[in-house]
Simulated scan of single mutants.
Amino acid sequence: MTAVLELQGVHTHIGAYHILHGVDLAVPAGEVTMLLGRNGAGKTTTLRTIMGLWAASAGSVRFRGQAIGGPDASATTPDIARAGIAYVPESMGIFSDLTVRENMLLAARAARREEQLDRARLDWIFGFFPALHKFWLYPAGKLSGGQKQMLAVARAIIEPRALLLIDEPSKGLAPAIVQNLVQCLAELKRERTTILLVEQNVMMARALGDQVAVMDDGRVVHTGGMAELAADAELQQRLLGLSLGAHA
């Protein structure tokens, strides 16, 4: 499998804390890779390091063969975004004082005005997240938590991206919204969009994941097929401390 993203021996320090301890990870093109692990394993730090928000102190991060992270890389976070990587942080990162419309326009690199947005793609997004259409002209800060999460995901997919990094998108969402989110990501998967997804929702992980990487203590300790992990209760218990079947 061709890897669109590769991390080799990545270490990340945040202040005095050594968070990542030599992460090795390959994300195959056109597939959904689940990044799983207990709380504090280093999953969010891995995504933020890929995005250049935290600097890798050792090792390398390569996207489409080009170095974007590591001591010798000069790419900034805007450079990484322009290269085709979109990031949906756990905190959502929306602009609360701007309207839904303005948030979407900021995320669309090819559009300066609403008329320049890809209308077919926008309608496709509204099909999964109808609240965004309803509250198009509302300040984003007045949306509910679930609606803000919809907006965070919608901004990342307003234009086709080469790679999506998504951190815990279903956290705190109502089941109906989670189902819409799963359907949206499943459609992106059918279109062969490459996704690296951190997610604690077992149903979502099993439904969407092609590959899986499990982290513990700042390292990737297991890689393989998501279906194989889902079928091996003993491995789940050892790696994650839970049974996916029991949480389905």
Rank of each mutant, 00 (worst) to 15 (best):
R62N: 13
L98I: 08
G145D: 02
I68P: 03
G127P: 12
A110H: 01
S74L: 08
R113P: 04
G84N: 05
G141D: 10
P78H: 15
G141A: 11
R109Y: 11
P130T: 07
R82A: 06
A29W: 08
K43P: 09
G70C: 05
L35D: 08
F95K: 12
K134R: 05
K134V: 09
G30V: 02
A111V: 02
D118L: 03
M104F: 10
G52L: 02
S144Y: 02
V61Q: 11
G59K: 00
E114K: 13
H133V: 14
S144D: 11
N103G: 11
Q147M: 01
K148R: 12
L36Q: 05
L47T: 13
Y138C: 15
R121G: 14
I80M: 04
L117Q: 05
W54L: 15
A58C: 10
E31G: 14
R101Q: 13
A107R: 00
T76D: 07
V61I: 10
Q147W: 00
L98F: 11
I94M: 10
S74K: 13
M51K: 03
P78K: 13
M92R: 08
M34L: 11
T33K: 00
L117G: 05
A81F: 01
Q66L: 07
N103K: 14
G69L: 03
L98W: 11
I94H: 14
L143T: 12
F126L: 13
